[in-house]
Design a protein around this nucleic acid. Structure first.
Lengths: 236, 236
DNA sequence: GCAAAAATGATAGTATAACTATCAAAAAAA
DNA sequence: TTTTTTTGATAGTTATACTATCATTTTTGC
């Protein structure tokens, strides 16, 4: 039996739901590929259209512009990640265990643990993750944040952050910075991963071709230390 | 007696040194104003030229493009901040005190403490700070990071980060994540300030028009807690 | 103060991105 | 098999991000 976990998206994120047509799905899949390859600024709807043997105008029927496509992809990622967290922390009681799972998920570790139905297998999660690392902050670092926020475009991000904050509060009900700690943790995970790869002197982690997973473990240790040392320090 | 602290910039950051001419200085000053007002994406050299009663082509003689202008502004900011740190921690022996000063500087607090020569008084630090908060990550989140990094464009950022890391090691010589903690702290300070203003549900800090400085103090408390709880937790 | 050099202004032009519009053809739904 | 919806194909508009050129102004060296 196969699972197909579908991520239902806020309607404000698109003009026409890309999940509902073959062309739409190709826009998403190849959009992920293209953006992962050339980056957000060098992505154009023309290039994307060529890649899927379609036309620029057709893509505009799905997304207002490429920024909205980015926002869509990032939102999809957060919803997907939230689903993973829900699934993986489902039977856990110890909030510390839950937080551990979250840390690993943030770095895309242990994805292949048994019984996790990877939703929409055709989505290239690795490529999407690299997009999130490099481009996600461009989704909100715009002159139109407030407007976009009103349209709920960042709800998946906020929901995920809220869920992490709730688990933080499970672990330590009197912790006063649950949401800030949660959002900082997400940002830090992504930024450190980026720095590790491109600006290693901003980190303590190298990234040779050989010991890559070892260095990723060290990043995980850092995040764990940051998180739990803050949660276990009593004087605020 | 007046001080004029000049920040000497890496020559790779510009085509012609904007500090060496009246036009160049106007490009910088009004560039800061414009970018703070309309944001990076909506800034164009044409608008900037109009604002300073000059021409697009003239600005191109100073900066290759607006991204390089942003990189320049951000680099200037880091160098300025490093100078502030050097100045303010000059006579301090206690590394904890030094770190406290850094936290405040990151949030642009206590700028007006006595005897701090605010370098180039004509530079609008507040506007520049808001640019750094909203746009700084766009300086390195590009497809050309590696290339730009080779040209040393991010050296001021890395130097500042390194200086903070050194003080962290003064405070706790065996701390294994000094640079990552430093870079995370900078990022977190900026991101939380942004979230506080535009996506408050990602933080624990409001930002009403009334109690603004109070909420900024709470952000400071959070950063302090994050920093010192990590530094004082012994098991890694 | 003058000649040479450098910087800027003024104007024009190119390439490309970011759309919008239109209508015919194909596909899907009723 | 009509009707509706979606896509293809083509074209066009506006704005940005530049580059080029040459005259004019400003600066610099002497």
């Amino acid at each position: 039996m196969e699972y197909k976990v579908l991520v239902r998206m806020n309607e404000k994120l698109f003009l026409r739901d890309p999940e509902n047509s073959e062309l739409g799905r190709r826009i998403i899949q190849q959009g992920i590929q293209l953006m992962a390859e050339v980056g957000f600024e060098d992505t154009t709807f023309r290039k994307l259209a060529d890649r899927i043997n379609s036309k620029e105008a057709s893509i505009y029927r799905y997304f207002e512009n490429k920024h909205r496509l980015l926002v869509y992809l990032v939102a999809w990622y957060w919803q997907w990640l939230e689903y993973q967290v829900v699934f993986q922390t489902n039977n856990l009681i110890d909030p510390r265990e839950k937080l551990e799972r979250i840390l690993k998920l943030l770095l895309l570790k242990d994805l292949t643990r048994p019984n996790v139905p990877t939703p929409t297998d055709d989505t290239n999660i690795l490529a999407l993750h690299s997009i999130v690392i490099r481009e996600a902050s461009k989704a909100y670092l715009t002159h139109h944040v407030t407007e976009h926020n009103k349209q709920q475009l960042f709800k998946p991000h906020k929901d995920f952050c809220g869920r992490v904050a709730d688990i933080i509060l499970e672990y330590r009900p009197d912790y006063p910075y649950a949401r800030s700690l949660a959002s900082s943790l997400l940002e830090t995970a992504h930024h450190q991963a980026f720095f590790m790869q491109y600006l290693p002197s901003l980190t303590d982690f190298g990234t040779g071709p050989d010991n890559q997973s070892n260095e990723e473990d060290r990043l995980l240790n850092f995040l764990r230390h940051l998180l739990f040392s803050s949660l276990e320090t009593t004087n605020f």
